[in-house]
Design a protein around this nucleic acid. Structure first.
Lengths: 189, 189
DNA sequence: ACCTGAACACCGTTCAAGT
DNA sequence: ACCTGAACACCGTTCAAGT
């Protein structure tokens, strides 16, 4: 009688359900709009239930940021192994990821999540950026040029995200990224 | 008897006092650690008092961000009119401002403060960046190069701020900024 | 082991009332 | 006009108790 199917509550996959619901709420309402009690309600569970799976609200946020870095890394890897010059493609992917996952991207860099005492988050971030760094190290340039290129994409992503750089009428983000990043690397072909 | 001096409460300069106290708390505890009730307590006033001066918590945050942009602009202007090449100096000042005012800088770009329906914040940001843009437009380069340079400093600032780029032992932020920004502009002297 | 129910201290915000 | 006091709905978190 108490088999796996028909398990209406005490439902076994709570941790995963919480993460999924949290990602949806985050995308819609931003970090400030994500409350643990709301989340528990959305998943149909008591307010205290999430504490069996996360140490508290910021631990939940950290888990979200980690999956953000993992998804980001997956995108970078997918694009790096594609055909064509990997660097411009990664730049495009970097900026597009930020624009498509605005709230998640912001959370990934929230000062609320100090990298110091959060090894999980720190590792996830390092892995994601290692993929990027390796692609750049393939070029002849060196640390300074690599940091400069990284800063440029990252700055472009955040400035677009925050509406500081506004796209012209009909201008696509990708073409702007290509123009700005391409200005430095002299065509390379 | 009810003259200006000895006005212990109903104290006349509440708005300004709130802003100053808020900046202190923000610098110490970050945006997440800044509560209106705490703030009221710190200033010695009832929880409802701030509402005579600010429409609510995010309106207070907006005011803080505005003064952030004003201070940022002042720093940029001070450096632009100094001696020497203005561009590298502004780049240094940009990054140093971010590092010295980490929480305030983050707040200035918080997605919680949508520029759309906040003309005050939007204007303050535009003014600050206009100073920067004017300095860059003086060069021969054009929009793409200017946006690229801006993105580079901004990205560098935020990556340093978030600890993604770590300084080497004894390495100063200013020298790194100079190296990275100088790599693009070919010395110009 | 995982979840509920009830409780605690706290918060943002509102509103009548005081001066 | 500016501030207080008290209240409301909400939140994060804890803990004993249930299964």
């Amino acid at each position: 009688m108490s088999t796996l199917h028909n398990a209406p509550y005490h439902h076994g996959t709570l941790r995963q359900s919480l993460l999924e619901a949290a990602l949806t709420i985050l995308a819609r309402d931003g970090e400030a709009g994500l409350s643990l009690r709301d989340l528990a309600r959305a998943v149909g569970v008591s307010p205290a239930a999430p504490y069996r799976h996360f140490d508290g609200r910021v631990a939940l946020l950290e888990a979200l940021a980690v999956t953000g870095f993992q998804r980001f890394d997956a995108r970078m890897k997918a694009v790096a192994t594609g055909e064509g010059d990997p660097l411009p493609a990664m730049g495009r992917a970097y900026v597009l990821f930020a624009l498509e996952n605005a709230n998640l991207f912001h959370l990934m860099f929230s000062p609320q999540l100090r990298r110091d005492q959060r090894p999980g988050l720190s590792m996830a971030a390092d892995m994601a950026f290692a993929t990027l760094r390796d692609a750049m190290a393939a070029g002849p340039e060196g640390r300074i040029a690599a940091l400069g290129a990284w800063a440029k994409v990252h700055g472009l992503a955040t400035l677009l995200l925050d509406g500081q750089i506004r796209l012209g009428a009909g201008e696509r983000a990708e073409t702007l990224v290509d123009a700005i990043l391409g200005a430095e690397l002299p065509q390379a072909r």
